[in-house]
Amino acid sequence: MKAFTGIQNFFDQKVEAVNQYLQGLSVRERVMVVFTAIFLTVVIIGSALWKMHSLADQQQTRLNELKDLTVWMQSNAATMKPANDLDLTPADKIQRTAQQQGLAVS
């Protein structure tokens, strides 16, 4: 509770300092300072959101490429033969033949 009170007092002091600074300015300067502060806040938030959106879009593109690669690998796994067909067990041979014909063996 003491820390919260300290933080609240710190922010109150800063707000009071800003208010005193703004009171010392003319109306025109005050409007310009407030408008500039609002404009910069909107620009900073907008650029952060845009950056997050572009990074998410890049990750989605990467995910789609990896999915396509996985599908390609699964569809071509049957055509990739080992160096020697004698190394295959009968179950592997059945699985390969079924995949070549587009069947799924469970």
Rank of each mutant, 00 (worst) to 15 (best):
M1G: 11
A3E: 11
F4K: 13
F4V: 13
I7K: 11
I7C: 12
N9D: 09
F10V: 14
F10C: 14
Q13W: 05
Q13K: 07
Q13I: 08
K14T: 00
V18E: 02
N19F: 01
N19Q: 06
Q20C: 11
Y21T: 05
Y21Q: 09
L22Y: 01
Q23W: 05
G24R: 01
V27T: 03
V27F: 07
V27A: 07
V27P: 01
R28A: 10
R28E: 11
R28V: 08
E29T: 03
E29H: 04
R30H: 03
R30E: 09
V31E: 09
V33N: 00
V33F: 01
V34M: 10
F35H: 06
A37N: 06
A37V: 09
I38D: 04
F39D: 12
L40T: 02
L40K: 07
L40A: 09
L40Y: 02
T41W: 05
T41G: 12
T41L: 14
T41Y: 04
I44H: 01
I44L: 15
I45K: 05
I45H: 03
I45W: 03
G46Y: 00
G46D: 01
L49P: 00
M52R: 03
H53V: 05
H53S: 04
L55Y: 04
D57P: 00
Q60N: 05
Q60A: 08
R62Y: 06
L63V: 05
L63T: 02
N64Y: 05
N64I: 04
E65L: 10
E65P: 00
L66Q: 06
L66S: 07
K67C: 05
L69K: 09
T70S: 12
T70R: 11
T70Q: 13
T70M: 15
V71C: 08
W72P: 01
M73P: 03
A77Q: 09
M80C: 13
M80R: 11
K81E: 11
P82Y: 00
P82W: 00
A83K: 06
A83R: 02
A83G: 13
A83M: 15
A83W: 11
N84Q: 13
D87E: 15
D87C: 14
L88N: 00
T89A: 15
T89Y: 15
P90M: 12
D92C: 14
D92K: 10
D92T: 13
K93V: 15
K93L: 15
R96K: 13
R96A: 14
R96H: 06
R96M: 15
T97H: 13
Q100S: 14
L103V: 10
V105T: 03
V105G: 14
V105E: 08
V105D: 07
V105N: 08
